[in-house]
Write a protein that binds this DNA or RNA. Structure first.
Length: 113
DNA sequence: TACTTGACCGTAT
DNA sequence: CATACGGCCAAGT
């Protein structure tokens, strides 16, 4: 297991219940700014059985990354709603559920704090 | 080796 | 809202 990948998993695991974060934010938090695609790729090959709140990771727009009506899309919507996150037309209002700005730092800490 | 793909992103028009 | 463009880069063909 690559160390940087471990940090990505850790960043995802650190997203609090009822909140969501973008692929880019996860990458940055893992010390890999600009590498959102890596996060997406890793999530596509998460080892079976590994506990990870993958469903709390969305696009920077708040859109789910899966095609509407696909299995992943429905599953992610279900899991998010199950913990109180609103999914409207395949999108989560980041203004209320996203980790951003000061809240981001409050929950995740300053990079290198 | 060369080219394509893809759970992405920010900026610009 | 929608296209386009350049970044990103590991895997698969």
């Amino acid at each position: 297991m690559i160390e940087s990948h471990q940090r990505v998993y850790a960043a995802i695991a650190a997203i609090p219940r009822g909140r969501v974060a973008s692929y880019g934010a996860i990458a940055a938090r893992a010390g890999l700014p600009g590498r959102a695609r890596l996060v997406g790729r890793l999530l596509g090959e998460v080892p079976d059985g590994m506990q990870l709140p993958w469903f709390r990771v969305l696009r920077s727009s708040g859109q789910l990354a899966f095609a509407p009506e696909s299995r992943g899309f429905r599953e992610q919507s279900r899991l998010l709603r199950a913990e109180g996150v609103e999914v409207i037309n395949g999108r989560v209002p980041l203004s209320r559920f996203g980790l951003d700005g000061d809240l981001d730092r409050a929950l995740w800490g300053m990079p290198g704090d």
